[in-house]
């Protein structure tokens, strides 16, 4: 059983809970491959998907996971901060909860927004991404996908390449991978690496070729231009030239590596199309596993009640 009623981040999740979620996801993945993909586990549970930031795949993935578990779902989308709208986040969520909602799946541009909510409301909260902080279900589905390819992650070399500074995927993945004993190396322009990140026990490199040669798997992140309030590097052109990954680079490696991307891909920037579509890539497996992981998280949190 999960220890917390919420999934706010990987930081507070122990290795045992990660194992439990992945194990449960594996079972749900089998369900998803059956002719009848639906199970009645969350019948009579109402889940609100509250997205204060644009999302396509995460929202669809959660919604599908909820439907596969027979939950009742409602969707709320609003872009921009709650302050700008004139209604506070707490008011918005309390309005939704007044309609007797049991769980909230929330994406928000502000780091800590789900943590703030968890102090004020009783429903289970699942963080579907909070600004540049955490994206726990992404890290869990990445772990699931990596384990399918590499087995136990202890001692495995995983590179996270790209805009680390603005990435919630990076931070959640670092936590998840370190808890599983993996070696983690971050790679990107020096302005996009948080200054104190090495305290988390990761290595830092600014050489993509060398990092690709080092790793067993590379998780490539997109440049988060929408989260960069100020300039961090000269141009996308230059970024693609010095930090972009091409099929040629992958083919020249002495060993086969696993290529991942949380999507959406900026084709031609961090990944060339021929790299993204190469046999190295497990990008679409990640998407499939995302549904199973989210089913597992929803199921495990609901079964605590």
């Amino acid at each position: 059983m999960l220890k917390s009623p919420h999934l706010l981040g990987i930081k507070d999740l122990d290795a045992e809970s990660i194992d439990l979620i992945v194990k449960t996801a594996k079972e749900f993945k089998e369900v998803l491959n059956r002719p009848i993909k639906k199970v009645p586990s969350l019948r009579d549970v109402t889940i609100a998907n509250v997205f204060f930031e644009n999302s396509t795949r995460t929202r669809l993935s959660f919604e599908l996971a909820e439907k596969r578990l027979s939950a009742d779902t409602i969707n709320f989308s609003a872009s921009g901060s709650s302050v700008k709208k004139g209604e506070t986040l707490l008011d918005t969520v309390n309005n939704i909860l007044a309609m007797k909602v049991d769980m909230i799946v929330m994406r928000h541009a502000s780091p800590g927004a789900p943590h703030y909510l968890s102090k004020h409301i009783k429903a289970n909260i699942i963080n579907a991404g909070d600004g540049t902080h955490e994206h726990p279900t992404q890290a869990l589905l990445d772990t699931f996908s990596l384990r399918e390819k590499l087995g136990d992650l202890a001692g495995k070399k995983i590179a996270i390449i790209g805009d680390i500074l603005h990435s919630r995927v990076a931070l959640s993945n670092i936590y998840a991978l370190k808890k599983q004993g993996a070696q983690v190396r971050l790679c990107g322009p020096s302005t996009l690496i948080p200054k104190h990140i090495q305290s988390l026990g990761v290595e830092v490199s600014h050489d993509v070729k060398e990092t690709l040669a080092w790793c067993d798997a590379a998780n490539v992140l997109r440049i988060q231009l929408e989260r960069q309030q100020i300039k961090y590097f000269p141009s996308l052109r230059e970024y693609a030239q010095f930090f972009g990954i091409t099929r040629k680079m992958l083919d020249e490696l002495p060993k086969e590596i696993v290529l991942m991307h949380p999507g959406p891909i900026n084709r031609g920037v961090e990944l060339s199309s021929d790299a993204a579509d190469s046999p190295h890539s497990i990008i679409l497996d990640q998407v499939e596993n995302g549904v199973a992981i989210r089913m597992a998280v929803l199921y495990l949190l609901a079964s605590r009640a």
């Binding site: 930081k11 780091p111 800590g112 909070d130 600004g131 540049t132 902080h133 955490e134 919630r168 931070l171 948080p194 200054k195 104190h196 990140i197 305290s199 988390l200 309030q229 100020i230």
Partner: peptide, 19 residues
């Protein structure tokens, strides 16, 4: 300090906040 929220250090990294 533009857009900074808390001290630039380990905590700002862990919290995803600009330091």
């Amino acid at each position: 300090s533009l857009y900074g929220q808390i001290h630039e250090g380990l905590q700002s990294t862990l919290m995803g906040l600009k330091g």
